[in-house]
Design a protein around this nucleic acid. Structure first.
Lengths: 205, 205
DNA sequence: TTTCATTTGTTAATCTTTTAACAGCACAAA
DNA sequence: TTTGTGCTGTTAAAAGATTAACAAATGAAA
């Protein structure tokens, strides 16, 4: 049963909130608490939870741990997907640090760069390899997701390399739009567009 | 006339493509070219352009410069909005560099940090100030958008400071969800959720 | 000229997402 | 016990976004 994309996004966020609450004395949480913490509508929370077959107590709310468990069953893949990060400039480092820091749901297994100073080192507890080993690693370790943080000039070339090597999804932090086959998912992080959209929305007020 | 949010996002992206094409010999472009470059449907392009009253030639397509001009009229605010970047760690630096590099549509006027080594310097052509001057600057210069890249522990405090000082929109790169009043827009860049959503989509295949 | 292939512009249909509405349950307090 | 409050679970309605369908226009080629 396929969940709506927006619902999956929110489930991911619910889980992170629940995670913080997991050792609180009161093991229950109300839909309106989750809603308030995410600035959304409580009905939406209940609807999302209904879609994954969650159920709460009419007087106490939802059981925190039960709910975390259930969300995991619905949105996690059985054997966690492997992730690599390509391009360890400032942005890549920031992301590597952020992702290695937290108790994670997903696993970064390698960093890639061309800089010989970085290659061979371990940064933020993740080993860094030469980009020439990229293709082999993807195939051998069955890596499914790549986070792309190389300079714009390299974006297309590296993306093609990733795709040819069998990557299934790319989180694209470059300013270049990638042309990918249908079976490769791309998610763009586009700061310019975000700024322009926000600017537009502000001018409507 | 209010444009759909998704349309505004795409208009922003059309414009950046048109910008690259602006000096080409052939000053026209087809809807299916724009579509291909963005991995979307040509009908969608034409529909978006229809919404802003754009018109093309049935045989040659849309005039590149005319279209850029038109998009600007529809989505830019008259006097470009002022932007600041708060928190100049690795992520903040990466964004500052990225935004100062390109010929911009939006203007970053200042960086803010607490590190005395950074304060007073000019980084990527943008002056860096002490975070204690944040509130005053927002009020005095009528800053409308802040890009928030401080460490998670400071996110809530700094966000409150921004809001109290009258900021209208926040691009939130921290892992913390901000609770903001209705009239302050927040746009989250949530890498964990993006990874989890992508993982889910891949498992559907 | 006339025909033809191609593209725009627009309306309608479909699909997705959000919000409203409300019945029914659970516990607390009277 | 009974009443009342405040929550859940679900269906229905509304809003938002994408895609399909097709008439009308253009200019190139026959």
């Amino acid at each position: 049963m396929k969940l709506p994309g927006k619902t999956v996004q929110r489930l991911s966020r619910y889980r992170r909130i629940l995670y913080k609450y997991r050792y609180l004395e009161e093991p229950y949480i109300f839909s309106h608490d989750l809603a308030r913490l995410l600035n959304i509508n409580p009905v939406q929370v209940r609807r999302d939870l209904m879609l994954i077959g969650g159920s709460g107590n009419h007087r106490k709310g939802y059981h925190v741990k039960e709910l975390m468990q259930l969300i995991g069953e619905k949105i996690d893949s059985e054997k966690g997907r492997k992730i690599i990060l390509v391009g360890i400039g400032k942005l890549g480092q920031a992301i590597a640090e952020y992702l290695s820091d937290r108790e994670m749901f997903q696993d970064i297994i390698a960093l890639f760069d061309i800089d010989p100073v970085k290659v061979g080192k371990t940064m933020y507890d993740i080993p860094c390899f030469d980009i020439r080993d990229l293709s082999q690693m993807i195939k051998k370790k069955k890596v499914s997701i790549a986070i792309l943080t190389v300079p714009s000039d390299y974006a297309v070339t590296i993306a093609e390399l990733l795709i040819d090597s069998g990557i299934e999804g790319i989180l694209n932090f470059t300013s270049v739009r990638l042309n990918t086959p249908e079976n490769v998912f791309v998610q763009d992080f586009d700061i310019i567009t975000s700024l322009e959209e926000m600017s537009y929305r502000l001018s409507l007020k």
